[in-house]
Simulated scan of single mutants.
Amino acid sequence: MTEKRLNTLKPGEHYTAQELDSFVSTTDVVLLSSNENQLFTEPDREYKVTMELDGFFEHSSEDGEKYFRDKKTYVVEKA
């Protein structure tokens, strides 16, 4: 069986945890999940991409400033 390599994720589409794992291993992205730290524990579990963002704000505890991180970000939830 040939494993497909993902270049991007599409909102509304479903992906397995294994596909998401491969994607984040080869792409500079942030993946947010409502499944806490269990996102990759079941490789065949499906997740739906609910949102795609161009970046996010992050607060620095070192200098107290907020910085926008220009990094593709996806929100996923268990399907």
Rank of each mutant, 00 (worst) to 15 (best):
T73N: 11
Y15F: 02
N35T: 10
F68K: 02
Y67C: 05
D28M: 01
E19L: 07
L9P: 02
L9I: 04
E58Q: 15
T2E: 14
L20Y: 01
K10E: 05
N35L: 09
Y47K: 01
T16A: 07
A79V: 13
L31Y: 04
H59Q: 11
R5E: 08
V75R: 00
N7P: 04
L20E: 01
H14Q: 04
E3Y: 08
D70R: 05
N35P: 06
S60E: 14
T8S: 15
E65G: 07
Q18M: 04
D54N: 08
S33L: 13
V49F: 02
L39C: 13
Y47I: 02
R69Y: 11
V75Q: 01
E65A: 11
E58P: 02
L32M: 11
T2C: 12
Y67E: 02
Y74V: 01
D54Y: 14
E42S: 01
E36K: 03
S61G: 06
E52W: 05
T8H: 11
S33R: 00
T73L: 10
F56A: 06
S61V: 00
Y47S: 03
K78D: 03
T73E: 01
R5I: 15
E62K: 00
R69S: 15
R5W: 08
N37R: 01
T27S: 13
T50C: 15
D70W: 01
S60A: 15
M1V: 10
E46L: 14
P43C: 12
Q38W: 08
F57K: 10
E46S: 10
Q18T: 02
A79F: 14
T73D: 13
S60G: 15
S34W: 04
K48M: 09
V30Y: 00
K4S: 10
E62L: 07
Y47L: 03
R69W: 09
K4A: 11
R45A: 06
E42Q: 00
N35Q: 14
E62A: 06
K71H: 05
T8I: 14
S33D: 04
F23N: 03
D70E: 06
Q38T: 10
S33V: 05
F23V: 04
F56Y: 15
R69Q: 11
T73H: 06
L32Y: 09
L6N: 07
L39W: 13
K4R: 08
T73W: 04
Y67R: 15
E46D: 14
S25L: 12
P11R: 11
A79N: 14
S33M: 12
S22H: 09
Y67G: 00
R45M: 09
K72D: 07
H59A: 02
L53H: 04
H14A: 02
D28E: 10
H59E: 07
L20A: 05
K48F: 03
H14R: 12
V75S: 04
K71V: 08
T73Q: 07
P43S: 07
A79L: 11
E46A: 10
P43M: 07
E58W: 11
E46H: 12
F40Y: 12
K48C: 07
A17Q: 09
E19V: 03
T27V: 10
K72V: 11
E65C: 13
Y67H: 08
T16K: 00
D54K: 15
E19H: 06
D21F: 01
F23H: 00
E3Q: 06
T27I: 09
S25I: 05
K4C: 13
T8E: 13
M1H: 08
Y74Q: 08
L6C: 08
V49C: 01
K71C: 13
S33K: 02
D63I: 08
E36A: 03
